[in-house]
């Protein structure tokens, strides 16, 4: 099998400026997607550009009020980093199994842009931004603008995903639930990541993201706004029903080999309701 192993980020970007490659870091998605028959190497649609070893693409740091995670940082490193908010760490700790998390990278999970990508709902609710580099340009986009469809995103062929960054939220309530096909090495039937903050009974922050229930992860800021700045005492049954119904319009899952549309939708909305109820005073 042929491929290119650049020694540095610059060399990788230079190569990308010249021809089309398929960047590959841990390979935990790509090796499976392009596998053919036993004992044969996978058949990539273009020449692989191996980037998993590039030091500049790895690491987690705090810059001002932001956490910055380089694209080829291993999932297991993020899972264990005290700098990383727990909602993302929880999600990663339920991905695949330790062996895969020791190979797979956050950048890979983002660029793979699967509706069932487990880092995505937490990154959506963290308002994460992705930074893309090409030889002559640097672009920064919100993750929900970056991902455009199942397996589709705004990365151009000459770009590499460089890093993902987000502010650490100051929330009082948090929920992460992955409903998978089993407890380990499982793809998500659906997942929900939610953060909220209520101070003196006032909800000053509310964010919720859903995975595997639509062509892209679902986050609806207009509905979040309706919850925000409410007093917890206003979370009546009617109000909660209204919010749940509104999300129902956005959650449009499919039947597939892992679950049913009905199950995905019903359970996603049940988890939403459970989170709203958590905000209510006991």
């Amino acid at each position: 099998m042929e491929g290119l192993i650049p020694e540095s980020l610059d060399e990788a970007l230079e190569a990308l400026s010249e021809r089309k490659f398929i960047p590959i870091a841990g390979g935990t998605d790509l090796m499976v997607r392009y596998k053919r028959w036993k004992n044969l190497p996978p058949s990539f649609p273009s020449l692989p550009l191996f980037i998993g070893h590039i030091a500049e693409l790895s690491g987690i740091e705090k810059k001002d009020d932001e956490i910055v995670i380089k694209a080829a940082t291993l999932l297991s490193e993020i899972e264990q980093s005290p700098l990383v908010p727990s909602i993302l760490r929880k999600a990663i700790s339920q991905m695949a199994a330790p062996g895969i998390r020791n190979m797979g990278t956050i950048g890979g999970n983002i660029v793979n842009s699967s509706p069932a990508g487990d880092t995505l709902p937490p990154l959506y609710v963290l308002d994460a931004k992705v930074v893309l580099l090409s030889k002559n340009e640097r672009r920064c986009l919100f993750i929900y603008d970056f991902i455009t469809g199942p397996g589709k995103n705004q990365r151009r062929d000459d770009e590499l995903l460089y890093e993902v960054r987000f502010k650490v939220p100051k929330h009082t309530h948090e929920m992460y639930r992955k409903v998978g096909t089993r407890k380990a090495n499982a793809l998500s039937k659906l997942s929900v990541a939610a953060l909220a903050s209520s101070r003196d009974g006032k909800i000053d922050d509310f964010r919720i993201g859903f995975g595997a229930v639509a062509p892209t992860p679902v986050r609806v800021k207009s509905i979040e706004e309706k919850v925000k700045s409410r007093h917890v005492s206003e979370l009546s049954d009617d109000f909660i029903n209204e919010i749940v119904n509104e999300y129902g319009e956005w959650i449009k899952p499919i039947d597939d080999q892992r679950s049913t549309a009905l199950y995905r939708k019903t359970v996603a909305l049940r988890l939403l309701r459970a989170f709203l109820l958590q905000l209510k005073p006991v």
């Binding site: 199994a97 096909t181 089993r182 407890k183 380990a184 793809l187 080999q257 892992r258």
Partner: peptide, 16 residues
């Protein structure tokens, strides 16, 4: 069959 890989045909792991 709809489930035709070991990604989709689910058997219990040690965790289960």
């Amino acid at each position: 069959f709809k489930q035709r890989t070991i990604t989709d045909y689910i058997i219990p792991t040690a965790m289960d």
